[in-house]
Write a protein that binds this DNA or RNA. Structure first.
Length: 486
RNA sequence: UCCUGCGUAGCUCAAUGGUAGAGUAGGUGACUGUUAAUCACUUGGUUGUUGGUUCGAGUCCAACCGCAGGAGCCA
């Protein structure tokens, strides 16, 4: 670049991208980045031993995986190596750093392999290491959550999780939604829904008392009672009503004593909120987001999806592919009730307009009627939150749930009530104190706009995209009742 | 929280109320460009905990602990 030339943003960007791509300071090459074009050259990889097959011909096959992709790499270690004897005493799980030539593989099962010039044993394992070659149940793996990332199934799950996270940010930022960080500690009794974890620095053994004999929270850290957030929605609404389109993506906490395969005490939630969106655009936003996620996964996680399709859920790939282009069915709650009544099927719980859809009802709708996700809108106001916009019929609200086969509700959302007087009367019906929601009401008092949004349970999306049956296996370290290990 | 089921070798699982078994991993040996390698031999157990019934309990009963599936709540 000649002296005196102004460096443009594009120049800086190109230079930055070059550097980012090369990562030339890294001590090892990731297995996923080993390419045919490197045949004949010396490469260095690091990873964990999956199996070792010794040959009395004087060499061993080491199958090494580094987590960067589903498939590992086969390393051929010859007895000429100085530490060969030591190598034949390494076990599954041993950490190795291998330098050698990338060569075409004469054997079946892999296009190339590494002919080692050195194998450094960084750490061996012994018989007490749980992850031996044989099958280990998912239940057992939960007991060793700190090690389970070394397995095929959890590794694949976390790679899918990572790509779904990337797809989430790509989709929303790519559509001009601003990524907003909402607080984790909150004082609003958010929605009155769900038990909350209390946050306090008071001495639990001997808390300060007020005049009425209750605990004096004015002496607590925040000078009031506080909790971990059960949703960033109210805060999200505030910024949407000023910055237009925003989304949050972060941890959320529910202290419900739920012991099921689809509930966690700590989970991640994606919550977009958009000004001027009505329920109609909200449902389309949800469908567009899901479609984007499925397409992105099929493009970026082929081997992992193939694994799930083969070992976990036979129809997974076809289902995801089908959903990339499919129209997403949308029906009203009233239509859903009619479908259930006409089903001619005996349900354990009766179908009754006005009561919430039971799990068996939701499953019937998406597994037997629509054979895929289905969006249900316009629920009776009595069974939904106070902030959802009242329809003109005075009986239903502009709520939407996206129901998925096997998992149930993956998305819950609504167009928000933007009329101050209606919102106040709805809060009164729910016995909520307006003083607690003063700032939330301000959004309607000053420059109110129609707006809508939804919350997506990120782990449930990962479940849906992997076929994994238990939500505890799609988050690295699950938090559930009676379990906060690791 | 409720209902149902389960808890046996490092792991995956057997075992009519009557001597605790297999596969796999580990060990030893054989064999081999192998790939869930193969073959032979072999180490390994306070049957979740506590109490009860019985001549005798892994097995039957009770309580507790833990886990799973389903339900409720929800995302």
């Amino acid at each position: 670049m000649p002296r005196g030339t102004l460096r443009t943003g594009a120049d800086l960007n190109n230079r930055y991208n070059e550097r980012r791509r090369t990562m030339d300071f890294a001590p090892t090459t990731l297995i996923k980045n080993l390419k045919e074009s490197q045949l004949g050259s010396i490469v260095t990889i690091g990873g964990w031993l999956r199996t070792r097959r010794d040959s009395k011909g004087g060499f061993s096959f080491l199958e090494i995986n580094d987590g960067s992709q589903f498939k590992g790499i086969q390393v051929v270690a010859d007895q000429e190596l100085g530490n060969y004897d030591e190598l034949t005493k390494t076990y599954t799980g041993a950490s190795l750093k291998v330098e050698g030539e990338l060569v075409p593989s004469p054997g079946q099962g892999q296009p190339f392999e590494i002919k080692a010039t050195s194998v450094e044993i960084l750490g061996n394992t012994d018989q007490s290491y749980v992850l031996q070659k044989g099958r280990v149940s998912l239940e057992k793996l939960r007991e060793v959550a700190h090690l389970r990332g070394r397995t095929n199934v959890i590794g694949a799950t976390m790679r899918v999780r990572n790509q779904l996270s990337k797809a989430t940010h790509d989709f929303f930022t790519g559509n001009d939604f601003l990524y907003l960080h909402t607080p984790i500690i909150t004082s609003s009794d958010c929605e009155g829904a769900g038990q909350m974890f209390q946050v306090s620095t008071l001495d639990l053994e001997n808390p300060p008392k007020n005049d009425l004999g209750g605990i004096d929270y004015s002496q607590d850290f925040f000078g009031r009672k506080t909790h971990l957030s059960v949703s960033g929605q109210l805060n999200a609404e505030a910024y949407a009503c000023g910055m237009g389109r925003i989304y949050t993506f972060g941890p959320t906490f529910r202290a419900e004593n739920s012991n099921t395969s689809r509930h966690l005490a700590e989970f991640w939630m994606v919550e977009p909120e958009a000004a001027f969106f009505t329920l109609n655009e909200n449902t389309q936003l949800a469908a567009a987001y899901l479609r984007y996620c499925f397409k992105h996964l099929l493009d970026t996680c082929q081997d992992d999806i193939d694994f799930f399709n083969l070992r976990v859920d036979k129809g997974l790939r076809a289902r995801l592919e089908g959903l990339v282009d499919a129209e997403y069915k949308c029906i009203t709650y009233t239509e859903a009730v009619d479908l259930l009544l006409k089903a001619g099927k005996k349900f354990e719980f009766p179908v009754l307009w006005g009561s919430d859809l039971q799990s068996e009802h939701e499953r019937y709708l998406c597994e037997e009627v629509f054979n895929g996700p289905v969006t249900v809108i316009d629920y009776p106001k009595e069974i939904k939150a106070f902030y959802m916009k009242l329809n003109d019929d005075g009986k239903t609200v502009r709520a939407m749930d996206v129901l998925c086969p096997h998992i149930g509700e993956i998305i819950g959302g609504a167009e928000r009530e933007d009329r101050l007087d209606v919102l106040e009367s709805r809060m009164a019906q729910h016995d909520l104190d307006p003083a607690d929601y003063a700032w939330f009401l301000d959004l309607r008092r000053y420059g109110s706009v129609p707006h809508a949004g939804f919350g997506l349970g990120f782990e449930r999306l990962v479940q849906f995209c992997t076929g994994m049956g238990n939500i505890r296996d799609v988050i690295p370290f699950p938090r559930t009742p009676k379990n906060a290990s690791f």
